[in-house]
Design a protein around this nucleic acid. Structure first.
Lengths: 242, 242
DNA sequence: GAGTGGTCTAGACCACGCT
DNA sequence: GCGTGGTCTAGACCACTCA
């Protein structure tokens, strides 16, 4: 292994170990080298190795047993996302075994409703950018994603926006904003107006993920209103303790 | 502050800081003392303080800005759970502003179906303990929780089981098992047979959380099949990056 | 008892924001 | 330039599991 100096060492080690697990270089159920062995291999301190392993552990990729060792979680295959990845729809669909594609349905200006203005800390009737995107798995529509972003944040002409990027990239490239945290409200909803585009009956029920993205200064950046056809894809996520 | 030697220092510091934030000793939006100030106050190393602050940051309680400082997240109030807390229903209901109570509906032995046997890695028709519990908020039923546990794990007479505990406690006390990680499948379902107990129409739709709990040796410990009336309570959770 | 992960320390240097 | 958080090191000791 040779590590570059440009990126944080821990990030590089993280990527290597993650790859080894996904490529079954470390097979499911197999024991990983000990922390001291890994720190020798990469030429880094044990503390650095430990911060990496800690991250992999909370994502459920590995299991750690004091006095015993570190093992690859045999059940990674069953899981299509983890708690940090629920908001990356392309990744979610891909991990569920589909070929993913994105259709940009609309990129246009609209006016803020009272509720939207409140959440985004702007005034009613202020301009918003509406992004309407359809995520497909093997050609079938699975997720309808609507994002609302205050037009005042826009840093490029609206025509330049490429709806095929993930929301973090869109916010960074076209709005020069870095997303720091998200809140997600999960509920069960009737399809209603969103039925036809998802090939569902009007009275079908589906999963609604209502997201709010914020900067690290607590400024609201965008609202996400997302409808997921959970007949086709059910998110299964993982959480580990300690 | 005086720290005892029995528990890990970082855990004690974690509890103190958490309390200060909840009691608004550190008010929403306010800046926390710097890492070095905190490490002096508690008499611990900066590294220890940092591991604690890192945990609070991923839960969204605090925001960290390099070159600036650490701030209490003003939006903690809006959030009723975080990623590590979705499976603690009593906590979820309480955080949503309700007075919580639990009704134990059934503690009995049943036989494993094919699907249940597969997930729990046992044989079809093997004995299972069924725990059926109803979580109420201000007296209204909100969550119907069914847990299935292999009877072979039972360490006490079945009559001794107290359904008012949270599942981690139940597994520890009556089955001598420590839960290490969970997977959760989230979907939208029709109420059907669960309608009446939750005071819903048969054709109402609600949130289903299908959970599987495992030990740190990857042994399946229990299946949780949970129905949540999301007309009354919608989980809103938070996730932060970095 | 040997080896594992878990906790903690005392330092160093860097990247960034503010003023 | 100063103070903040971000990264990393080298080493210590403890708690635990397994043979």
């Amino acid at each position: 292994m040779h590590l570059s100096r440009s990126k944080p060492i821990s990030e590089q080690v993280n990527n290597v170990l993650r790859e080894r697990i996904c490529n079954t270089n470390y097979a499911p159920g197999e024991r990983l080298p000990s922390e001291s062995a890994l720190s020798k291999e990469f030429g880094v301190s044990r503390a650095t190795i430990r911060t990496v392993l800690a991250k992999l552990a909370v994502e459920g990729l590995i299991l750690r047993r004091q006095g015993d060792g570190t093992y690859v979680n045999e059940r990674v295959e069953e899981i299509n996302t983890h708690l940090g990845g629920l908001w990356d729809f392309a990744h979610l669909i891909e991990r569920s075994g589909f070929e993913v594609s994105i259709q940009s349905q609309a990129v246009e200006k609209v006016r803020a409703s009272e509720e939207e203005a409140r959440v985004l800390a702007i005034d009613i009737d202020d301009e918003l950018i509406l992004l309407k995107r359809l995520f497909l798995g093997n050609g079938s529509p699975i997720i309808l994603a609507k994002n609302l972003i205050p037009a005042s944040l826009l840093a490029v002409p609206i025509e330049k926006i490429d709806g095929n990027l993930r929301i973090r990239e869109i916010m960074k490239q076209y709005f020069l904003q870095e997303i720091s945290f998200v809140t997600v409200e999960i509920s069960s909803r009737l399809a209603e107006g969103n039925a036809s585009i998802l090939n569902l009956e009007q009275n079908a029920h589906l999963l609604n993920l209502n997201m709010r993205f914020y900067s690290n200064k607590n400024e609201p950046l965008t609202i996400g209103d997302n409808y997921l056809n959970d007949k086709i894809l059910k998110p299964r996520l993982v959480q580990a303790w300690h």
